[in-house]
Nucleic acid binder design. Sequence first.
DNA 1: ACCTATGTTGATAC
DNA 2: GGTATCAACATAGG
Length: 270
Amino acid sequence: MPELPEVEAARALIDARALGRQITAVDDADTYVCRPHAPGELAAALTGRTLTAAKRIGKSMWCETDGGVRLGLHLGMAGRILVDGSSAGDPVGPGEDDRAHVDPRLTEHPEWGRFTLDFADGGHLVLFDKRRLGRAVLDPDLSHLGPDAALVGKDEFRARVGRGDAPLKARIMDQSVIAGVGNLLADEALWRARLSPNVAAGSLSEEELDLLRREIRATTRSALKKGGVHTGRLIPHRERGGTCPRCGATLGRASVGGRTTYWCTAEQQD
DNA sequence: ACCTATGTTGATAC
DNA sequence: GGTATCAACATAGG
């Protein structure tokens, strides 16, 4: 689920629906999701407060509070944010739009609600995460993050991405280089830019780097508008035996940067 | 049953 | 420091 576009949708949901509501109770009992906090630590810091802002860099988001403490939220591999039982950002089905909607899975799987803020008006904010790789922490450390992939400027992109011996795909997925690009967004943007995921990042020309930045931004914006990275053109073809939706050539499949990678063997050559 | 896969990240080792 | 690998989690599918 969550890459930059999904996290931004979750942030926008909190921004629109959860700010200014007094927190009356906090369920922080999941010591894995809330690590390294002990049970009750988030509750002690947040009870009685209100969220005053929702911010994001890359895939990391956090809420400011009127108590000064910040609540860090990360969706991990499969997390979503529900406010009053509704989520945002994920596809809701053919023919439907991407507005917040009632998510039946919370009632079907209450045990996947890993962290909860109860509000005085009876509503709630839930970190809903089947896999428990999401996080809820106080005062998250964001110092290791590079600039947001949707905002990074041309010169900074050239300097940060265009170096090193690691494969290009690994470089753009390194959150300390630029923040927000995950596995699917990387495949989609590299495919749009017709660049091989396997070349050394440091071997790119300035023109290629500028093109890649443009495609990362375009892919991100498109995914934001349409409701998620899965709306990309290449994504439906990412399977064994898949073919390029532009030219019909066979897609290559390999592990690059530790993640399963698909690319067009005709258009994205080393 | 057993093996693989999965939209992330972090610790660890060279 | 840069890079590669593995483990953390819990499910789904062949």
